[in-house]
Each structure stands twice: as structure tokens, then as C-alpha cells.
Computed example of a mutant assay.
Amino acid sequence: MPPAFALSEVSVVRPGKLLLENVSWTVHEGERWVVLGANGAGKSTLMQIIGATMFPSSGEAEILGRRLGEVDVFDLRTRIGHTGTAVAERIPPRESVRDAVMSAAHGVLGRWREEYDREDLARADQIMGELGITALANRTYGTLSEGERKRTLIARALMTDPELLLLDEPGAGLDLGAREDLLASLEVLSASDDAPVLVMVSHHVEEIPRGFTHVLMLRDGKVVAQGPLAETLTADSLGRTFGMTLELGVDDGRYTARRSAYGRRRRVT
């Protein structure tokens, strides 16, 4: 079976800045990846490449069996689900959660005169149930908390049954309770047999849901490490990614990280 996407020595150059340098990365069906790195590491640029919204300056990118530069990207993008601020900011505040999810079937933001059938309604309700937001169905988007909005965006992205789902910092701005609710939803999604290939960007190892299988680590546009999560995410690789000495812990499939303690000062007597 061909990979979900494959990047070969991809670089992205913009005036005065090398955003990605010789990135090679292959992701297969059934894998759940988290992309880790500090601000400016190249994570957003990488997501734009695999989301078919940016072309590499050099190298080759094959997404869902189609090579960028040789395919109609508008058709390709219909097979890829996205969550992020660009979508969130365009959903009308008075739109109901159910309509915000269901309108993705027509590729619109805000219901107008589209007609939806029972299958659309059933699919929207099923997805909302799986993500634990059924009780929000009749709430308006503008009244939701940040965590509720994040789960609504994921439900909307799943409405079109994408083959690839890109989660761009879904935990950003969430308090502890909202983050845990979101992670619980992502764990359910990652365990589903019919879930799309998942790629999630994050700054924090604490946001990695159980069930994710692989990690890619970036620093200054270069790959620090990539591979199976349990083998690749170590204190050493994480430290090299963020440029500091870190301690990494894992308990029941959840990770924590903190800066290593400095040497204690000797007490002056």
C-alpha cells in the first residue's frame, strides 16, 4: 500500500530565510504522528506542504499518491481535513454547532441555502457523539469555550471523511480541564479503525494523546529525530529539539517534561 505522504529532501526558502532544509519524511496509513518543535522550527511550513497549500522550493512531495506540481491541488485538498485558527475565525458566531459541523459537507462556512439529507445529519451526529460534543449540538458557536470550539473544529474536519487529518496545535490556549477533554476525544479518534492518518503539531509533550504512534522533531527547519514514539522521544532527542537539558517522564502512556535542575548552591557559613 502506498504511503499517505512522502517528502524527499524538501526545502523551503523565502527571502532571507531557510524555513525547511532537506526534510525527508514518510507516513503510512494507520499511523498517528505528533510533530514537536519550538516556535520557528518549521512546523507550520511543514503542515502547509503536506496540506497542499505550499510548494517546496526544492525536493519532492507526494501527498495521497499525487505529486505536488503535477496535480490539481484544489482537488487534492478536498481529501485533507484541517483544524486551525484560519477556519475557526470564519465560522459565524451565531452558527449552531451541528450546522458548523454539517456545512463542511458542502465546503462552506455558515449555512445559506444548501440542502442536507438524512445521511449528512446522521454523520454529523455520529461524529459529534464520538468526540463527546452531542450536548453542544444546538449551542451557537460564539457561546462555546475554547476547548469546545477545538472539538467542534475537529468534528467539522472529519465530516468530509478525509484521508489525512492535520491538527495544528489543537491544545493551544486551553486550560487543564479543556486540554484533558480534548485529549480524551483524540484518544477515541486515534483508536478508531476507520480514522484518517493523523498528524498533530504541538509544542508540548503533555499534549500527546495515548494511541499516537510516531514523532517527528524539528529544530531550525531540520529534522532532529523521527520514528516510533516510544523509541524516538527521549530526554536527549527532546533536549536537542528545544536546545536545553530536559528530563522526560512517561506514565500510563502520557508524557511530561521539565528542565533539569541546576546544581545546588553551596550554603555559605
Rank of each mutant, 00 (worst) to 15 (best):
S57G: 04
S58P: 00
P56M: 00
L19E: 05
T53W: 11
N39Y: 13
G30R: 08
P56S: 02
L36N: 13
E31L: 05
W33R: 10
I50E: 10
L36A: 10
M54T: 06
A41P: 07
N22K: 13
G30K: 12
E21N: 11
V23D: 06
K43I: 12
L20Q: 00
G59I: 04
S57P: 01
E31P: 04
I49E: 02
G40W: 07
N22I: 05
E29V: 04
T45L: 11
V34G: 09
E31G: 01
N22H: 08
V35L: 15
S44K: 07
G40T: 06
R32E: 11
L36F: 13
K43Q: 11
A41K: 15
T26E: 14
V23M: 03
V34N: 06
E21V: 03
I50V: 15
V23R: 01
G42A: 08
W25Y: 03
V23L: 05
G40S: 13
E21T: 04
T45I: 10
G30Y: 03
G51N: 04
R32M: 12
G59S: 03
A41G: 13
L20M: 03
S44G: 11
F55I: 07
F55Q: 04
G42K: 10
G51Q: 04
E29T: 14
R32K: 15
V27S: 06
P56C: 01
E29I: 02
V23K: 09
T26V: 14
V27K: 05
T26N: 02
L19V: 10
E29R: 13
G37Q: 07
W33C: 04
G40A: 13
A52C: 07
N22A: 12
N39L: 13
A38P: 10
P56H: 05
T45H: 10
